[in-house]
Write a protein that binds this DNA or RNA. Structure first.
Lengths: 197, 197, 197, 197
DNA sequence: CATGAATGAGCATTCATTCAT
DNA sequence: GATGAATGAATGCTCATTCAT
């Protein structure tokens, strides 16, 4: 009980940290603001976390796409590629939307924060590995052409990350919404030849 | 002469601001650090710029891909699509590498800085517009299938931006280098069908 | 107890702010100096007050002549005008002397600080209103001639404020001290005809 | 010519200094702002004045009521007291209005600026002396009762200074305008008995 | 005479962090 | 566990002043 209570506290702080960092960036997510949102004082946060870095490290590590992807991987195993990729892309975009602070923070902080960079690499690598396995499987099964699965993965995740980033984080109004139609069109664009046959 | 001297000063500050912001982010690029790198004191920077925002706004506005793309557009007009896209992608990656602070700063700051966001949108829109015109021209000329040129542009630029970001900014060592071979492979992946015919 | 402690802290800061502002003006009363006088560091003041403005606003609002005047009003109701005015004038000068920062700050800051100006107006209006009521009552009671009570109030307070200001703030040594004799003489000058009958 | 030209420059700086100080106080009247209003650079001001203090000292010393009062003194010598005082009061208020920075600056700065205080004392003393001579003359001539001319002078100038200060500097809208009617009423209030005979 | 560039001290404010209670 | 008070370093920015040109 006692532990679960402490655990709740920690989770609350982490959630608040993410929310605020999402709106105002890592530097904008001050300990005071996090404390205020939780209705406690700064000292309380330091009772639970060594420092700001630990709070964020832990919060980030918890909010990873990997477990989501793992589950999706099993669900789509038997589906045709087009549908499988749709599910993954949709899951990925939904994930970004829900845990939207994750990537924003990572992208912002990583370039000048080695620890953050390392964490990001670790996460990205794991996801890319899973996805690459999927592509390689489909290639082996003859459902995909012998494409470079490494680059394909980069292109796949990168495209949806970018689309989300530009539309929903940077608020570019002239871009199309990142909805089901967009995802489907994007996958078609990836799978089919751009060149006139 | 006199003017060029003052102009040099401004340029020097802008360059230093970009360099430092690239390494440490916008917040990390303090006026003091910028001044120190230039061998002057804080006040001197404020003699040349109204405030930090003006310094960065001007620096960013100068370091735009648009003029590079404009030139490239003319050079590749007559070339086959595959070669044309290669030139643009290469130019884009080179640009990121040289003026590498641009995107990093924008991506970091834009989500919680409306002005920065507006500037980014403005730049992105212009580039996307040019590139979209290129795609539409090629589609009309029958060299490309009737793809959605809007999404195609997002995918094209997005992929190379991501690749650069992950490899050279976030230092992900497991990723392939963003070199000519990578660019060529990427374009092939975009242009040709991923699916087994 | 806990509350009184925090309250004491705030009061201490306010008192120090007033003291220093009295000696060196609003701009001269820097947060650092206030902190130093209290034996704490700057941050500590910001723990208790949102900003410098709040600190001063609160300090000023606390040091108002209104409550003093209210009490005096009751005490002098039955007394002859000459004595009543003496009590009020004496109370006013004493107030200026004790809380001497109040007027100095207001007069200095008000011309280019709208908030300060508003606060000053509010205070002045309230006091003038009370005093005017007193004059009008005495006129109705036939103890005073039908003078313009509005201007009379201005003249009454204005004279003592000026006398205090010049003698004790601007240290004009050639002026007579603002003591009981001065107050009595001044009131006689107000009440009796300057002209030879 | 050369000198007159330099003299014009100095006058221009002094005038600008006064204007700005009137609007924004002494601290708000920065050398840069004064230079800008004159269309020159900071260095130029320092070519003409040793420092900010000298600039203001000189500007203030030039803008004194004394010469105006001296002239008025002669004009009103033969007039009845009531009219004479009206002329002086009117001249005084007009002076404050035109050179309105003078007193505001002095009142603001004097309390924590010994030099400013000395200057103010000097000016006030001279004016008071002249006015006192006027009152004493009228008393000797039997036109005024044997009042304390020292306090009378304080009351006279003090009242109009205050009225001007509160109405036109502190912008107290509830107060009557400081116009001819106000001046006349005020003088009547000074000269005639407030008490019911 | 005037400029433009620079200085260095200072200011209001913020923030991560500490610690006695 | 939590609080409230405090710290000290840092930040963007201002300003009077200096000086080579």
């Amino acid at each position: 009980m006692t532990q679960s209570c402490g655990s709740d506290r920690r989770s609350m702080f982490k959630a608040a940290a993410m929310e605020i960092a999402c709106q105002r960036g890592y530097d904008g997510a001050t300990i005071k603001r996090i404390a205020e949102r939780c209705g406690v004082t700064v000292g309380s946060i330091y009772h639970h976390f060594e420092n700001k870095e630990e709070l964020f490290r832990e919060a980030l590590r918890e909010r990873t796409f990997a477990p989501v992807l793992e589950k999706l991987m099993q669900e789509i195993a038997e589906q045709p590629v087009e549908e499988g990729l749709f599910q993954v892309a949709k899951g990925f975009v939904d994930f970004l939307r829900e845990r939207r602070s994750l990537f924003s923070i990572l992208v912002s902080e990583a370039p000048h924060n080695p620890e953050c960079s390392g964490l990001f690499t670790e996460i990205a690598r794991r996801n890319a590995g899973m996805m690459r396995g999927y592509f390689d499987g489909k290639i082996a099964a003859g459902q995909l052409a012998p494409i470079d699965s490494g680059i394909a993965v980069q292109m796949f995740f990168g495209h949806f990350f970018n689309a989300y980033l530009h539309k929903e984080r940077l608020m570019m109004e002239h871009l199309p919404p990142v909805d089901d139609e967009f995802v489907r069109k994007s996958i078609r664009l990836l799978l089919h030849s751009w060149k006139q046959p």
